[in-house]
Design a protein around this nucleic acid. Structure first.
Length: 110
DNA sequence: GATATGACTAGAC
DNA sequence: GGTCTAGCCATAT
């Protein structure tokens, strides 16, 4: 069933789109919300696929420590940080400062 | 079809 | 308490 695979991506994209402005989440959180909690990496791939879609705020998704691990996949060197700061997220040295405060858990919020 | 890789995470040492 | 290893699942070669 190839539909399932695409459905997984679709869900990841959906959740990413639901992330409120000024909030961030982690790959594992999305993976857990989708049921595949062990597949945080796959969420990263989904984000990679979502990278082509400007409607998906991939910059709001970081790793579990609030580090902009995916910033290398964005254009330039600090585009991801710029986007986050533009939304009011405090980022320093490619790491979200008040990560715990702005952390958005889809499993709880949704 | 098998192997390698990756935007991760949790556990072990 | 910091570093390393293994597990996870989908994509790419």
């Amino acid at each position: 069933m190839s539909s399932n695979n695409q459905d997984f991506f679709k869900r990841v994209h959906q959740v990413a789109t639901l992330i409120p402005v000024g909030r961030v989440t982690s790959y594992g959180a999305i993976a857990q919300y989708l049921g595949t909690k062990s597949s945080a990496r796959v969420v990263g791939w989904a984000m990679n696929a979502a990278h082509g879609d400007l409607s998906i705020p991939a910059h709001r998704v970081v790793n579990r420590v609030g580090l902009l691990s995916g910033k290398h996949h964005f254009e330039g060197t600090n585009l991801m940080q710029q986007l986050l700061e533009n939304e009011g997220v405090v980022v320093k040295e490619n790491k979200i400062q008040n990560f715990k405060e702005i952390y958005w858990d889809p499993c709880k919020e949704l």
